[in-house]
């Protein structure tokens, strides 16, 4: 292992990791918002919007992120819509993640039985109150673990950003391999960087999930 090489190029990885995480976080937050809206549309069976959401979810779930990104980055400019690499990364991740988040929210909402809703209603609770006091607290215990899994899945998906010339971790690693042939060092730093990003989140989530499961009983 060539330590001077690692020392020399570590700052590049840090920079790339910051970029990956920034775009990842923004994309994931947007995905959560999109997912929540889509889940509510499906849950309350809002006409027309419901069909649109269904089509979106299928398109998003049944195509690879890299193809979505290529279309955004190389295709759309030909239709007059010019997006930066960063914008493509964010939009692509939000487009992909929104459908996964929607399904997680929805499975939580649907896990609350009909009798629960009816008995809350027959106690005179209003729609909003039923949501707030009865549905959300129960839905959370189903949704949160699934949402957490989505976050990790989406963070991993950010690795394809380099395909649209974002100077992310993969991009830096590939560059260094191409330029200096220090493959071992470049890959080691790549793995380390992803571990630093994903491992803590994954540990926090699994602790959280265990605690929630205990509280649920």
């Amino acid at each position: 292992m060539d330590w001077s090489f690692i020392q020399k190029f570590a700052p590049m990885y840090v920079e790339a990791a910051v970029l990956t995480v920034t775009i990842g976080v923004i994309g994931i937050l947007l995905a959560v918002v999109i997912g929540l809206v889509c889940a509510l549309v499906k849950y309350y069976r809002i006409p027309v919007a419901r069909q649109i959401v269904a089509v979106y979810i299928e398109l998003s779930r049944n195509t690879p992120l890299i193809v979505q990104l290529f279309f955004l980055y190389f295709g759309l400019p030909k239709a007059g819509i010019l997006l930066s690499s960063e914008a493509c990364g964010i939009i692509g991740l939000a487009f992909l993640g929104g459908s996964y988040m929607a399904e997680s929210f929805l499975s939580g909402l649907r896990s609350v039985g009909k009798v629960q809703l009816e008995s809350a209603e027959s106690l005179g609770l209003r729609r909003g109150q039923v949501m707030r006091y009865i549905v959300i607290p129960q839905a959370a215990s189903v949704s949160v673990p699934a949402l957490a899994a989505n976050v990790i899945f989406l963070l991993k998906e950010t690795s394809v950003f380099s395909a649209v010339s974002l100077a992310d971790l993969m991009y830096v690693a590939k560059d260094l391999i191409g330029m200096y042939y220090n493959t071992g060092e470049a890959l080691t730093m790549l793995v380390a960087a992803y571990l630093v990003i994903i491992l803590p989140i994954s540990i926090v989530f699994s602790v959280l999930e265990r605690r929630m499961r205990r509280a649920g009983n």
Binding site: K156, E157, T158, S159, V160, M170, A173, K174, I177, Y181, T183, G184, A186, L187, L190, V191, Y194, L195, I198, L199, S202
Partner: peptide, 19 residues
């Protein structure tokens, strides 16, 4: 599971050749 599939692809494609 912890690593992106693309990272694994790089490790195998570049790393094995090197190693």
């Amino acid at each position: 599971r912890i690593m992106p599939q693309l990272v694994w692809l790089f490790i195998i494609f570049f790393g094995i050749t090197k190693l």
